[in-house]
Amino acid sequence: MRTLIFRTVAPYLTSLMVLFSVFVLLRGHNEPGGGFIGGLIAASAFAIYGVACGVSPVRRSLYFHPMAISGFGLLVAAISGWLSVVFNVPFMTGLWIKVSVLGVPVDLSTVLFFDIGVYLVVLGSITSVALALEEREHG
């Protein structure tokens, strides 16, 4: 599996897939996509990277342990749910604000952060599984 071509291409492929996954995540509210799909795409990206170049480069590039990312995602999702409680509306009520970034109006919402949380949980957990299995193969 670890052919020269594959090893050379893999980092770029992974970067592209991760970028694509973020795109899928962000557009998910209006077009097909979302946190689950985005997370799976990103996890596949890291899995491919791991198959191609071994597990340690993946771990280095991720910097955090995948399960830590997963846990952070769960935290983000939970916090965006609880944020509504601060504004005296029921748990998980979506809150929206419009902010202007460089003159472009952007919708920010707790729902978006919730989706980001989902993305991180799926990404982290499944990457962790894939890497753990790959590690045993090469280790």
């Binding site: 998910g28 509210h29 209006n30 077009e31 097909p32 996509g33 979302g34 946190g35 689950f36 749910g81 748990f91 998980m92 979506g94 929206w96 919708d107 919402s109 729902v111 919730f114 989706d115 989902v118």
Partner: peptide, 16 residues
């Protein structure tokens, strides 16, 4: 405020 109904159900209506 979402046009993808499936995603809206997942992250908003049925978020819990």
């Amino acid at each position: 405020h979402g046009r993808n109904i499936v995603n809206v159900i997942l992250v908003d209506f049925r978020g819990t």
